[in-house]
Amino acid sequence: MQRRRHRARALVSPRWSAWQQGVRLVAGALLLLAGLGGCASLVPQTMALREAWPAGVARSSENAAVPFFPQQDYQCGPAALATVLAADGLEVGPDDLVKSVYLPARQGSLQVEMLAAARRYGRVSYQLAPRFDALLQEVAAGNPVVVLQDIGVGPLVNWHYAVVVGFDYPAGELYLRSGETRRLALPFTVFEYSWKRGGYWAMVALPPQRIPASADAAGYLAAVAAMERVAAPQAATLAYATAWRRWPDNATAGIGLANRHYADGALAQAEATLRQTLAQHPDAVPVLNNLAQVLSDLGRNDEALALLDRAARVDASPAVSPAVSPYAAAVRETRALVLQRMGRSR
């Protein structure tokens, strides 16, 4: 889209293009005015906020300490990302991020890369649920939120990243670090209109010891697993530990933490974590398998074999058909390894 616009700009005379833009502007304004009557369809979530304000969220909140990096050229992606990273004291500026999020030929940054780049800095990138209440919850908790807006008018598409740092519902405004404006105040209606076209996309990037206010366990743990790919191992360990404290009965959190301990060679800690998880999830095959592996590494192959038999029984139970048991192969492999270590063939 952007490339096409550029070509068009080169072909037509400046005056023609200015006139065209003027027509588009007026058309856009008329469209909006026409929409005022039927606002509900234009800004459904703002309308819904009138009926019910999200429970437990303050009516106004602002984190004025969030730094500001004025964007250069088309680089609002690096600027927005630097804003949220530096908000937690990381010493990083837009220039450091250009090489990891800016795409020269697109003159912009992709959403996927905004999420991916923050992981390199040991931050857990979490994409928010596409709703106002999730956004407001994060901002009220002091977490700056990167949002994708379409600030074009009518047929003009113009994608832009900004950072929401505050809002004042009685005044009807949200406050953003945006472009070259340190504190841009946008009405809820206008903001939603620009936010809607990107599918209400929003993300936070928080240090591993802080879980996003609106996060759910499954989504957050997937985000941590994504970070684990590229971040320093200690960051992932800390994130799993934090998640496990927050959701103590979540098996994935326990498995994640135990896997980190195992990778660090802390077998005793891995065993303790897995045993605690197993107590709550006696039929969890991944927990049985991994605990068996840890015990086997500790030289306790008999105990390991007993656990693997238990895992095989769960997999063979009528509730789990072999076709859908995704861990059967791993269990067989672990079993073969344990038997080999015991000097047995079966």
């Binding site: 502007l25 909006l32 005022l36 992709l110 994708l148 209606t189």
Partner: peptide
């Protein structure tokens, strides 16, 4: 899909300021 997905880049808020103002005074929340 790399050429089809949004790439946020521009910050020309001024373009739509006029429209903003129309709406701004009519409806804020």
């Amino acid at each position: 899909q790399i050429n089809a997905v949004p790439a946020g880049g521009d910050g020309l808020v001024a373009v739509i300021l006029v429209v903003f103002f129309i709406w701004y005074f009519a409806f804020r929340r």
